[in-house]
Design a protein around this nucleic acid. Structure first.
Lengths: 191, 191
DNA sequence: CGAACTTGCGTCATCGGTGTTGCAAGTTGT
DNA sequence: ACAACTTGCAACACCGATGACGCAAGTTCG
């Protein structure tokens, strides 16, 4: 690869990133926004967007692909398999929140035309279930909770926490894990 | 009003209900569905839909209006102000779930062109906060939880439970309230 | 039967978003 | 300066959804 090509490709990739970020910003506020609005938010002409992404679907797919990579990396970085369940739960939560806060729309596109995206999401889901089983074995998680319900509650709380405009990922993760495990009640008056 | 007029209006209103229900069914699966698809699901011609609802927005607004009425009624029926907090929490949850399971899309349209819809949603939100304050006073809810976070967690759990395909509203409400108050943890190893 | 009304069907115009192309102007590296 | 490349801009064709008609056929009454 020549120096020229490398420099030019670098520019091109910077433009791509700018567009992806603008698309996330716009589409998270209005999923039906037009390419025109996305281009405007990115500070480029609409034709430029079409040069980088053949179609609207291709753009959304690219967003999903990028976000999914970040998502998988966030989970991986917490080493949920080789860390005590409670610690892993906290680390995974904080890491995922960091990604989801900035890529909420893209991450919600688990169904992409790219089968790889679906695969990764399924894999993360499996790791989540494994983490929860480990937590049950360690006595952190109740043994009588439906695994499916547990995962859905966890995902819902992450989704909700990511919408918060206040606090950093660590603070949010602390509150989230606390709520997930202890709930919001005092424990009095309940069986 | 003559008997004739009453009978005719009755027919018209039945058609309207059919369309609203079909729209909910279709739009909950695909928010971008066309009027054609909605009409097909309702078993009527597209022109008929346009006769009843001047525009697409008008249809969605009507859905939001109808769902909001049901929503408010569901909350009201639980008498959250004159019932012990824990009982009220359960009743409200079960009643709202019954509505939300069938009108998930319409209920998510809290922002309607009809200001009345927004007003009702705001009012319900206020009642929710009042219920939570009552629960705190009764020692059911922890006193140190952020009221805003508590309400958002509650809404998120309702949203999630409404997606469940198994179990009736009462079963779902039981599990939901249990999760909300006790969380999913054992209580061991946490401060 | 006739009146009032609604529905389905076909048709039409319109509009906005999408995707493509050609070209002039600008930037970047050699 | 030259070459390679990218961008903005204007223009274009295309398509699907929307919304408005009129009209014939159907119904539910009195």
């Amino acid at each position: 690869m020549s120096e020229t090509t490398r420099a030019l490709r670098s520019d091109a990739e910077r433009t791509v990133r700018t567009i992806l970020e603008a698309a996330e910003r716009v589409l998270s506020k209005n999923p039906a926004a037009s390419m025109e609005q996305i281009a405007e938010a990115a500070g480029v002409a609409r034709t430029t967007v079409h040069r980088r992404f053949a179609s609207r679907d291709a753009l959304v797919d690219a967003m999903a692909g990028w976000a999914t990579k970040q998502f998988a990396a966030a989970v991986e970085a917490a080493h949920p398999e080789t860390t005590p369940p409670l610690v892993a739960l906290y680390q995974v939560t904080a890491n995922v929140l960091r990604v989801k806060i900035d890529w909420g729309f893209a991450m919600s596109r688990a169904l992409s035309s790219d089968p790889e995206v679906g695969r990764v999401h399924a894999e993360v889901e499996a790791r989540c279930d494994r983490l929860f089983r480990g937590a049950q074995a360690a006595g952190v998680l109740r043994a009588d909770v439906d695994p499916d319900w547990a995962r859905r509650v966890y995902y819902a709380l992450i989704h909700e926490a990511a919408q918060s405009h206040d606090g950093d990922a660590d603070t949010l993760a602390t509150r989230l894990v606390d709520t997930l495990l202890r709930g919001l009640g005092t424990g009095k008056g309940l069986a």
